[in-house]
Design a protein around this nucleic acid. Structure first.
Lengths: 345, 345
DNA sequence: GTGAAAGCGCTAACAG
DNA sequence: CTGTTAGCGCTTTCAC
């Protein structure tokens, strides 16, 4: 592992093809306005020399990087551990790749990292950013906004400021929750409880709102706050069982929570779905298919969400580059959910 | 979102501080060989102007990018779904961040992407690469090797070619497997079965070897090939139960597989650990703590593995830059494992 | 110790 | 349509 071959430059290609650097540049960048025979010659020279453009030199003049930052805040590192993250990343990666953009991953561990991220963004290393803003009080959104980098958020940012102009992609948490509760009601259940997610995240708040939409004057004791974890689900379920031993259904804010609830239900001798029907949210396959019984849940297409985030951002950048001026902020998108019926409800 | 403020250049800072560009450059890059008062003045100007170096311009002359590619092959997308990936990424990210390096993530979906990755690497966009080579027949390792980019692999690459000079970080799969089986034997078990992982991955092969090290002349029927998935674990367990109804212990190649096995064991009325003791591998908390009973397993420190990969690579790059010449390939590292005792064995 | 000057490899006017 | 000419912002000899 020694000799790093000196890569050929435009100049070299130009010489070999017997044309000027400008012509080679044109060909390399699409070849518009160059006559066929020349194009041919240049292509051949590029091929023979194994020429690859130097991105640094190019960026220096174009001020574009064809690179997008993906910023993941993982305060509790909990969010990070589930397949969610990987799926979104995959969706993003696919879309970026399809448009020849690079994915620069920025993981933030806490307050300390915010400054670093801010600096990086302000440094103009990337053309845009995709951000997963997990918590309501997260300082990241504002920081990013200040850096002046075009951004699309994953999940509606729970931003105290006016949300105008903030582009995001989210799933229809509220609608999905409504579907879940309606399904339960359709099964003839009347004492439908809800175990919430971590309420400092908009997804949890929206799901709770959806529950309330349907259970307009629900017994407040049927709602118990939790945190999206299995352990939290267990605790919440125990609490619920104490408060309302007569409940006949549970809508859990996510599958992990539902799995915890299921376990407690089983332990305490309740049959699912006969005694208590259970619906989750997410449709995380590794979870929903492994619970006993398999979990009825609300599916959201995570990968598609990632893909859409990238698409929205890229489109915005394009427009910005061409129309230049009244650059419309890319509008937000809310993805639909679907109820997946399994055995638990 | 309109006015993109024109970022200040070295020139601007120099003017404001009343020095030359060269001096500013020196200060920005460590400030060696510049007198204190000047350093002070420059620092102040940098601060006031909010100057951030233009990485593209810098790379153009230094030929360094302070960026590392992380390449994840995810053929079945299975590997991708579990927390493994996220944890390794986190370890890598931390280490890179600590050394002011950027993480460029390259996800490959299949054959088509290989060419793209090869081109990217050859394009000299990054200073090095971290690669998770998942399968024995993966063409990626060779491709990367050819691109001439310093690389560290995650997990021993199952490379047909001579493995000399290939740097990797792995856990002691074989040793861990031995520990698992010895633990079972220490419990007085004699009919110890093994459900293998996907044998096109070195980790699975090594764990099988470890099993064999201890069970020198094991009944071959006690070994059944599987694929690291829960469903695979179920299938394998059923098969085992048919072949050897008298087995009294199972060492599963990973926790997911063990979870599947546990389920079948329960279904078929076996008590764990009384009738059959079970040990897994990985210690994936979300799994091991949720099984019934909680799973005894072999822990590996995934995050540390990621961190080490990055450290190894960065160190290699440094050396390469300084000693320049007999740049020793960074040697490989094998991390230890520990047995975590829970209720299943 | 500090400054002046020469590029790094590329694109983008501008001529021809 | 093609070539010539300036730089993009920075580092790095080389003089002073």
């Amino acid at each position: 592992m020694t000799g790093t071959a000196p890569r050929p430059t435009l100049e070299a290609v130009a010489e070999r093809a017997g044309v000027s650097r400008a012509t080679v540049s044109r060909v390399v960048n699409g070849g518009d306005g160059v006559r066929e025979p020349l194009v041919e010659r240049v292509r051949k020279a590029v091929e023979e020399l194994g020429y690859v453009p130097n991105q640094a030199a190019r960026s220096l003049v174009t001020r574009r990087h064809d690179a997008i930052a993906v910023i993941v805040a993982e305060p509790e590192s909990r969010v990070f551990a589930d397949p969610f993250f990987a799926l979104q990343l995959r969706g993003i990666s696919k879309e970026l790749t399809a448009h020849d953009n690079q994915l620069v991953l920025l993981l933030t561990e806490g307050r300390d990292d915010h400054a670093r991220v801010g600096r990086y963004l302000a440094g103009g290393h990337v053309d845009g950013a995709l951000v997963f803003s997990l918590h309501l009080d997260d300082p990241l959104p504002e920081l990013i906004q200040r850096a002046g980098v075009p951004t699309v958020f994953g999940g509606r940012p729970g931003w105290s400021g006016d949300g105008r102009g903030v582009a995001y992609v989210d799933v229809d948490n509220r609608g999905g929750a409504r579907d879940a509760v309606r399904h339960l009601a359709g099964l003839g259940r009347t004492r439908i409880a809800h175990i919430t997610g971590a309420l400092d995240q908009t997804s949890a708040v929206d799901r709770l709102d959806g529950y309330r939409d349907v259970m307009v004057d629900a017994d407040p004791r049927l709602i118990v706050e939790s945190d999206f974890t299995p352990a939290g689900g267990e605790r919440a379920m125990r609490e619920l069982l104490t408060r309302c031993p007569d409940l006949d259904a549970v809508f859990a804010a996510n599958d992990l929570t539902a799995a915890g609830a299921l376990r407690v239900l089983r332990e305490t001798g309740r049959r699912v779905p006969d005694d208590v029907a259970v619906v989750g949210f997410d449709d995380m396959l590794p979870v929903t298919e492994q619970t006993e019984p398999p979990l009825t849940t609300i599916r959201q297409d995570i990968e598609e969400m990632g893909r859409l985030m990238a698409r929205l951002l890229l489109r915005g950048l394009e427009r910005n580059a061409t129309e230049e001026g009244i650059a419309a902020a890319p509008s937000s998108v809310v993805l639909p959910t679907t109820l997946i019926r399994r055995a638990s409800a």
